[in-house]
Simulated scan of single mutants.
Amino acid sequence: MTDDFIKLTDRLASPATDIAPALWLPLLHLLAQGDPVEIERLAAVTGHTVPEIHAALAAVPDTEYDGDGRIIGQGLTQRPTPHRLELAGDQLYTWCALDTLIFPALLGTTARIESSCHATGVPIRLSVGASGVTDVEPNTAVVSLINPEDMSSIRSAFCNQVHFFASDEAAQPWLAAHPDGSVVPVAEAHRIGTAMAGSLLDEILPAQPAAPEKGAHGCAC
Rank of each mutant, 00 (worst) to 15 (best):
A197L: 05
C221V: 13
G218W: 00
L201R: 05
A141E: 06
D18A: 07
P179D: 09
T94C: 13
W95M: 13
E137W: 11
T120C: 10
V183Y: 08
P173N: 11
D62A: 11
D135A: 14
R112A: 14
A105V: 12
V60A: 12
C219R: 12
M1R: 05
F158H: 07
Y65G: 07
L8T: 00
T77P: 06
E38L: 05
P209D: 01
Y93K: 05
P26E: 03
L106E: 07
I146F: 07
C219L: 11
D135W: 08
I71Q: 05
P209V: 01
M151V: 11
L200M: 11
L145E: 01
D68C: 08
A22Q: 14
A55M: 09
Q172M: 14
S152M: 02
D35R: 12
P206G: 11
L12E: 04
S131N: 07
A105M: 09
D99Y: 04
C219F: 06
I113R: 08
F5C: 01
L101F: 00
P173R: 10
S152C: 05
G218N: 00
D18I: 00
E52G: 15
D4E: 14
I146C: 11
K7P: 00
A130D: 15
T100N: 05
S115D: 03
K7D: 08
P173F: 12
H190A: 06
P206A: 12
H54G: 14
I146P: 10
A210F: 08
L27W: 02
D150H: 00
D90W: 10
L85Y: 07
T140S: 14
D35Y: 08
P212H: 08
A171N: 07
A216L: 13
S156E: 02
A171F: 08
A44Y: 05
I19L: 14
Q172G: 10
A189H: 01
L175H: 05
E137S: 13
L200Q: 01
R84W: 08
A119W: 06
T110H: 14
L31D: 01
D4M: 03
L27V: 02
P82Q: 03
D35P: 02
P82C: 04
G215D: 13
L92D: 00
F158M: 03
H118D: 09
L31H: 02
V122E: 15
A130E: 15
A166R: 06
A210Q: 13
L28E: 14
K7M: 06
G218I: 01
R41H: 10
R84M: 13
A176S: 13
G34L: 10
N160Q: 15
A16L: 09
E213K: 13
L42Y: 08
I124P: 03
A58S: 15
T140Q: 05
R41N: 07
C221R: 11
T63S: 06
R41S: 11
R84A: 14
S152K: 03
H83N: 15
P148S: 01
L23F: 12
H178N: 15
L200T: 00
A20G: 11
I192F: 01
F164N: 00
